[in-house]
Design a protein around this nucleic acid. Sequence first.
RNA 1: GCGCCCGUAGCUCAGCUGGAUAGAGCGCAGGCCUCCGGAGCCUGAGGUCACAGGUUCGAAUCCUGUCGGGCGCGCCA
Length: 585
Amino acid sequence: MKEHLQALLEQALERLKIQGEIPSAITVPVRVERARDSAHGDFATNLALAMAKPAGHPPRKLAEKIVQALPPDPVVRKVEIAGPGFINFFIDPLAQFEIVSRILAEGERFGRSRSGGGRKVHIEFVSANPTGPLHVGHGRGAAYGASVANLLEAVGCTVHREYYVNDAGRQMDILTVSIWVRYLQNCGEALPFPANGYRGEYVLAIAEALQREHGEAFRLPAAEVLRGLPPDAPEGDKEAYIDALIERARNLLGGDRYEKVFQTGLDAILGDIREDLEAFGVRYDLWFSERGLVRAGRVREALDRLGDGGWLYQREGATWFASSRLGDEKDRVVVRENGQATYFASDIAYHLDKLERGFDLLIDVWGADHHGYVPRLKTAMRALGAEPERLEVRLVQFAVLYRGKERVPMSTRAGEFVTLRQLREEVGKDAARFFYVMRKAEQHMDFDLELAVSQSNDNPVYYVQYAHARVCSVFRQLGEKGWRHDVDRGLKCLHKLTENHEQALLGCLARYPETVERAAAMREPHQLTHYLRELAGLFHTYYNAHTFLVEEDALRDARLNLIEAVRQTIANGLSLLDVTAPESM
RNA sequence: GCGCCCGUAGCUCAGCUGGAUAGAGCGCAGGCCUCCGGAGCCUGAGGUCACAGGUUCGAAUCCUGUCGGGCGCGCCA
């Protein structure tokens, strides 16, 4: 409808230009919006206001000219000029009914479009280090990324979902020795747990599994392990201690056994992460290994490429990327003095790899604490010859957990965080997924566990799902009363839907496709949650105000068509959020 | 100190890229089941859009500054 009115306005402008009423040179984007107030009709445009200055006419006068030049159209019942020069369109009510037939005809496809232009989009999200289970902080990125991916697919993009597995860095070595120390302790060796190690219970569980499967194959005397190590915190430096311990583990265990402990830890944790995400409704097309990237020589390649472009230089024994020449605040090290590539270097290689795989757009979803990282990665894109717009970084702010009024402490260090699994078990997948995307991503969020789990009216998830279940319930009642739903008869009698509640619902339903389009274009799934809440609210109001299962066949079928359209739309919207639409609750 | 995000009703938040009288939910005060599911509905009170300037027909929205909150500024990942 918007497009239709925009086309009419374009025609009017053409006509005015030909008539010489307005200069033909000026171009103003024609934008039609839904009127907020029904007194202002159904749609409105500020075209005359926007054009007044370049056209050299006062806005109201210009509006009159535009209205006169507007070609007649059966759908447009009335056009008014209001306020400073808005042009308001009143749509023929009969045209509003069309949405119901459309929804029933399109079913699950209703709301899908091609507005994304078939772009190939790569979206990387979560990508938490496989050094421990996912916690609630990762949940928001997961819910957001998955919903954005679904939205992009709904508007016709080809979407590739990917998890970047950081299995190559020092953190993984720290995990490895953490497991090993726990294992040695379990074997009866008396040695202290490193201050900088991973303390979570999952480490113990992995150590136990290691012992079950391999007995004492990795056991060494504590004295040998500890001999000559520098002091650990608090007296000593915990970083130096753990590095020495890693070195010691490598030497004593040898490459193969060290690798075995490493791999056991990685597999266990990654397996957990996959399981968690799966249960959270999140699926990936690819789990991309950083180690694989390094082993394939891709990091070297990427650095060579930067070097060929003249972007690298040596200083103080390290290799630097001259990112400040492209606007970063300072240059960045890519190869350390000790010859090891930095995390940044493999990240550059990873993004180069993505670019070479032929995606039109790369979307990275990161925690907001990584925001300082955005400019340098953008400069790397440019140095590699890619337009920086091909990389879009979406930052997701932290969620602070509450139980009622009380803030839930979160400390990864001490291992006393709430895992995503605990959250899911406590509030359920549906509530968690919905809650996480209810707020704008860049908005700090308070996540109240008590609220999410409460089966009450304060809980928007149930409110929306309940609307869906209620429609299903009406259809069950229909059968019990011995009636049958005649869809065609209902479609012919849609004009009987004249109540205010029905008109409001029709208007809301008509807005669904554009809501999906906007949410996708802006990467804002929260727009969809707000829409669904509104639609459900209008339905509940309607439900209370009118009986659907009336004696009059034609009216009953018309109403059933309307509420079936509501049900379908809610189901479609929820599915984009990976939230279920239950038939009963 | 510098950079990024944020500041809208008692609380949690929307506000459709600058439009018309700033909206929801919760909470609070009242009301609605002989009726398709009360996990629902209706009515009401509640605002200096942090503050001060600026841009223009028009600002919660854009620009500058101030104040307040969060996060980040490693040869960590």
